[in-house]
Amino acid sequence: MTCKDNTGDLEEYLDGKLEGERYTILVQHITTCVSCQAELQKRQKLRQALKEMPVPPLSPDFSRRVFMAAAQHGRKELHRRSFYTGFGSAIAAGLALWMVTAVWFQEEPPPAQPLPTVSIALDEVRKVKLVFTSARELHQAKVSIRLPDNVELAGFPGQRVVSWEADLDQGKNLLALPLRALQQQVGTLEAQIEHDGKIKILRINLAVEKSPITGSSERSLPLV
């Protein structure tokens, strides 16, 4: 047996799956081969380290929150199927989930409809999630985000407009915006989608508050 032949057997040995003659041959080889002993130790060390990689604890109220969100979404879905006809928004405590249905081919919502508002604590970075629902696949749609003065996109300091091209799937498409709160005021974020000569502008209010937002551990409502 050569050291090169061992690779697979070493892995099976570490899995505790190596049996019979192959086991005997490998064990005999290892006892006399310093190089294979070192290799085995390295593999053991890596596996052990992977097992020990820490996982932070779940947020204390996660279980309650997640089942509440599931039940809420279940009720909303039922309501939506029965009464929902066009355009709407849904916001969970803390993070926004903004849903727009059939965005390109519906009329604008009535002007009187209040904009959804998301609160962000000053200097906090918060992910605001927007969900765009498209009636069909859209290739190379131009997405532009216009930011109010009171926030900036994390990673894009000082940039008020960020644009790029994206393909949208039929159905729901998620856009997560990590926003950093800069000034204590309310501003309006605009997300513009442009495709095939049609433009849709969507707006959401961002209220920056001085104190930490209570219930900040709340996460978004479901995306589907």
Binding site: V55, V66, A69, A70
Partner: peptide, 28 residues
């Protein structure tokens, strides 16, 4: 599920989001 999600995502916030999304999807 959270442990797995953390292994996939590499951070707690996204792992919790992923698990929540799954639970919500499975509810119906």
């Amino acid at each position: 599920l959270y442990r797995l999600a953390f292994r996939f995502c590499g951070n707690r916030a996204d792992a919790e989001d992923l698990v929540q999304d799954l639970v919500v999807k499975l509810y119906p």
